[in-house]
Design a protein around this nucleic acid. Structure first.
Lengths: 352, 352
DNA sequence: GGAGAATGTGGCATCGTTCCCACATGAGAA
DNA sequence: TTCTCATGTGGGAACGATGCCACATTCTCC
């Protein structure tokens, strides 16, 4: 009796299975499966009956069962470093858009810049038989684990160094070179560069570009002009303040990303420095606020959304079976001239 | 031969199953399952052997199989309207943070403000046996479908009107009332309100607050002062321009969200209106750029990240089996005074 | 008129895990 | 000694969808 109550009493709404749909339509699960999936022979009339039954019962196929039987779930993983940063949000939006159009869902993991958390995410993706994974790497371990298990991986924005996976990046060196060349052409000779990592990833390449621009212009480099805040700095604005105090001869600042640019901008405002008269500023990465502030920030715009889309497309091809060698797409940044740069000691020529 | 090549040739790395782990440890799958899951009796020594075997083989449990057998996958769905909007990005970040800490993955769907796409997302969540779903509703259908199938749902930011689900919102009416009262106290009498929907959701409540503030101050309302841009306006700044041309007597603008605030701000800058001397501005929602621009925007700060966290926590309780009646959490917004508001015709008193 | 396509349909094993249950074993109680 | 009971262990049936294969039909062509 008690047993009956627990077993027979279908508490809540039980899940509608394919078997029930088949029963309702007076046929077998096999046929129903074929009808609904659209593979193999099914008579037109029967197919319609099955579809009607499915609709009537509110049938929703079970992806767990499907992906257990088949090779993989339709899930695609994405690992980013900080979702609250507009950069990664835009990236995720581009990825989601492309995946959704192809009928895939996106599982989003925020690793907060930690390799360990990225690895946890990768393990979770493996466990859910993700069809593929996109990631902005913070180390090699996550990529390695996934590639080892045969999951297609596309790296975005940065490269972990694992050769066997596709990647989509933005030409950081070129963007930085253009930005710094612009400052040099304006006559700046003591250009500070502020970044949050110099060893690998985009920071390294942007630093390269900074140096290349100097070399090309025949302007000597001074190590003291490069400020490395370190990853996830506790008080970036304070560090910038100390740096500017120690290097009062700086006439222009090149900020390597939007976080750094914000710290620089706020600090210049705090100390009442006139931009660009007292100090020119260029940012790598162009966010909403940079075109809203007065003067607008001269910036290197990155096609972030497009990067997400491109990476997702590459991944979809791999998922579809593309087997060729690893490909790397490099997207071109765009230099956007606004009011925050001028010749040293000169107010902005234009107020757009 | 050809057949053998396809069947027998275990191309790539085959998935390690529990059976193989058990074999390696010299025991049965049942026992291995118990050892790894931590339920039921397993001798200490054997348990250690099984764990070692699992580690050695790089065993990753298959969630498809697990969730097929059990009730649900550990996946939690989140539906937002526009991931590129910092508001939703912060919301998603809060949700992700809480879910990840509890060992759940987040599947993110961007419905672009379309009910149909939200519904597609809901169906996908159902198909993947999502443990629960968080959504910023754009209609009732998605919530209804999920609730009907017994999936726990928590609505965020807005309410669809479906009574039987939890919700976490921000007190829009109160926030708007405070913002508009502030303007009224400063002496403004022709305060425009700009929003992108007035019929339901947050827009309706913010409009209520706008009206309530006027009533409380005994200031008559003028319908012409409310500008409804409509959802996803093609050229919001242009609409604001036309509106300001048609209503030149406006001395202050209350922008109902960050998108609208941006359009208003840009338009005021374009036409060279001095803020706050010519026109005061208050924004509902406080983004990064609002504290960076000069003067800073007076704004109603919403605890967005916290909203995401709270909603996720509520959902986790439901997933854990909480059965009580639907609960609604209302978070309090915070009025942040900056330089963009002053008495009509007066420059800002403070430049922070 | 019969071989053999072409067109439909259903049976059944399978995917990897869980978990109920049956079965061992040894200790302590009667 | 026989019985319970606690502690372990393994067998095997699900979970729901799929897709191979066998089996029915009907049709076509020599």
């Amino acid at each position: 009796m008690g047993k009956d109550a627990r077993t027979g009493g279908r508490s809540r709404r039980a899940r509608v299975t394919l078997r029930e749909v088949a029963q309702e339509a007076g046929t077998s699960p096999s046929t129903a499966s074929r009808a609904l999936a659209g593979h193999g022979y099914v008579a037109e009339g029967l197919k319609a009956r099955i579809e009607a039954a499915a609709a009537r019962l509110g049938y929703v196929p079970d992806v767990s069962a499907r992906s257990l039987k088949g090779r993989s779930s339709g899930l695609v993983g994405l690992v980013v470093s900080d979702l609250r940063n507009q950069f990664y949000a835009a990236l995720a939006a581009g990825v989601e858009q492309t995946l959704a159009a192809a009928g895939h869902q996106m599982v989003l993991v925020d690793d907060h810049g930690s390799d360990t958390q990225a690895l946890d995410g990768a393990r979770a993706f493996l466990a859910m038989r993700a069809a593929g994974v996109l990631l902005a790497p913070v180390g090699r371990t996550a990529t390695e684990l996934l590639v080892e298990h045969g999951t297609p991986v596309v790296e975005v924005d940065r490269r972990s160094g694992v050769r066997s996976c596709d990647a989509v990046t933005i030409d950081s060196e070129r963007g930085a070179r253009e930005a710094v060349s612009h400052l040099l052409e304006l006559g700046h000779r003591r250009i500070a560069m502020v970044l949050d990592e110099t060893v690998w990833g985009t920071g390294r390449d942007r630093l390269k570009g900074y140096r290349a621009a100097h070399r090309a212009a025949g302007v000597p480099l001074a190590r003291r002009l490069v400020l490395d805040l370190g990853l996830r700095p506790a008080d970036p604005q304070g560090d910038v303040a100390a740096f500017l105090d120690a290097n009062p001869d700086v006439t222009a600042v090149f900020a390597a990303n939007n976080l750094v640019a914000e710290a620089v901008w706020q600090e210049l405002q705090r100390r009442g420095s006139a931009v660009p008269k007292d100090c020119s500023v260029v940012s790598f990465d162009d966010l909403t606020w940079m075109r809203i502030v007065e003067p607008g920030l001269t910036a290197v715009r990155q096609p972030v959304y497009e990067m997400g889309r491109t990476a997702a497309e590459l991944l979809l091809e791999r998922i579809a079976g593309e087997r060729g060698r690893a490909r790397t797409h490099t997207l071109e940044p765009e230099f956007v001239l606004r009011g925050s740069t001028s010749a040293p000691g000169t107010p902005a020529e234009q107020t757009p």
